[in-house]
Design a protein around this nucleic acid. Structure first.
Lengths: 153, 153
DNA sequence: ATTTTAATTGCAAATCATTTGCAACTGATT
DNA sequence: AATCAGTTGCAAATGATTTGCAATTAAAAT
């Protein structure tokens, strides 16, 4: 069941207590659904869709809508990062304290397996793009696509 | 009404005849709706959503669904390129003959103005990413976001 | 430990972008 | 002008995500 799993820099699985602590600090309630969701995110290195999280959850643990609301909230608090693989479904990954979660992925266009990538768009080029166009606060969204070893028929 | 418009490499507005010619070659019919859609794309340098195309069209010229279908077809023929700015709506830009349309944009997160970017992700790094992970046919999706000069309060 | 209160949840229904079914229509070819 | 496959419009279906609202509950106050 395990997918390609080349974790270079996110191998630090956060403690559940640390996660709930962050919630508490923000005056959020630690509810059953939230603990369950965090627990699932904690154990998954790659971005998950809300449906996938829902599927991992014990049967009636919580409603899909609750997951949507939880992810919205966690994203606002900076505890999860939203990724867009271009298939019309949002994916979320837990973000470490202090970290901004910025990184990229290499996705197999056939089997959808995901590899986390260390490389990033060169800073100096991004700065030049910002300067030349007089934009400020420039970031980027970047994902790679290709055929994974197993799918190269 | 004009947005920020720094066209570096797509300043070659294709002839309508050349576009319909491509359709004809593919055994597609040149219909009123299609000609109208191509005409609009031809005159717009930046990616347009189907709704935007629809809005530009003379009132009852054609149905929104027809635009969806036309864009699907044009994308399949490689005549338009689909872009994803992460807001859940596809955008399309006309692609020159022979060109694959691969390029990126800098989008203002406040006013949504778009600037076309010449820079691309460094090839050698992409090749390394492919090699290291044993992926083939690797490409990328990349867009930049920031505050445009006019929106920097 | 019990009350109080605001945050949270579930469920149904609403939205939005996009797709699909199907019968009527129309370019392009003969 | 006849023919026929490709197209179109309209309604309805899909899929992801959001929203309204009344019932529930975690956490603070008593």
């Amino acid at each position: 069941m395990k997918k390609n799993c080349a974790h270079k820099h996110t191998e630090k699985k956060q403690e559940l207590a640390s996660l709930t602590g962050r919630l508490r600090r923000e005056a959020r309630k630690i509810t059953g659904p939230r603990a369950a969701i965090l627990e699932i995110l904690r154990h998954h290195p790659h971005p998950l869709t809300n449906k996938e999280i829902f599927a991992e959850l014990p049967k009636g643990e919580c409603d899909l809508v609750t997951i949507y609301r939880a992810m919205q909230m966690l994203e606002k608090l900076g505890m999860v990062k939203r990724f867009d693989f271009g298939d019309g479904t949002a994916r979320f990954e837990l973000v470490g304290e202090g970290d901004d979660g910025h990184h990229h992925h290499l996705i197999c266009t056939r089997c959808a397996s995901v590899v986390e990538i260390e490389e990033c768009f060169p800073e100096e080029i991004e700065r030049r793009i910002a300067r030349v166009n007089e934009f400020t606060g420039v970031t980027h969204r970047l994902e790679f696509f290709g055929l994974c070893p197993g799918c190269q028929k």
